[in-house]
């Protein structure tokens, strides 16, 4: 395996470790668990000083992880944050990827976003075709018996719950 040697880095390390007995004497470049997925060429040591692409113009709100200083040179423009879910997402991006609250807040935003999606559809005069969207045609064609049983059980459970909730109190 090729070993990359950066003269400047070697000098810096040499200064740091010159008084440490035995430093580096057992180093083995063959012992590299990242091989062959990583081609060691010293690029790690460029840190953030690499040639970057021009910045994509920012015409929409783009959240970025607080584990990096800003946005990346390119980003997706699909579905920018909006509405209540957008406000919740904004809150989520105040904490790092290491925090459970970051992800749980995004999960909450996703749930709110689904309701917003139905409202948006209705506003645009679209009544969602749930049967088509859920792919029930495929279930009917290839899995009819189990599918009908599942729907029947769910309908019975819903009917029982509704019946129980709307029962007349004696």
């Amino acid at each position: 395996m090729e070993r990359y040697i950066d003269p400047e880095m070697d000098r810096r390390i040499a200064d740091t470790v010159k008084n440490i007995p035995g430093w580096g004497m057992d180093a083995d470049p063959e012992n590299d668990p990242t091989y062959p997925m990583k081609k060691r060429n010293g690029a790690d040591y460029e840190r953030i000083h690499y040639e970057k692409a021009p910045q994509q113009p920012v015409n929409i709100p783009v959240f970025h992880s607080i584990e990096r200083p800003g946005i990346t040179r390119v980003f997706g423009t699909s579905t920018p944050p909006s509405g209540l879910s957008g406000l919740i997402r904004k809150q989520a991006f105040k904490s790092s990827e290491a925090k459970g609250t970051h992800w749980m807040t995004l999960v909450l935003a996703d749930k709110v976003n689904v309701v917003e999606g139905v409202i948006e559809d209705l506003k645009n005069g679209i009544f969602p075709n749930f049967v088509a969207e859920l792919g029930w045609k495929a279930e009917w064609q290839y899995n009819r018996k189990k599918f009908v049983t599942r729907i029947a059980v769910k309908a019975l459970v819903v009917a029982a719950v509704v019946g129980w909730l709307t029962r007349k109190k004696k």
Binding site: M37, K38, R40, A43, Y50, E51, K52, G70, V74
Partner: peptide, 20 residues
Amino acid sequence: SCPFCKQELYGNCHESNPEA
């Protein structure tokens, strides 16, 4: 061109995902 792409870790690019 980021350090990860240069080391052929193209699935770990540092300049394509602001969100994570």
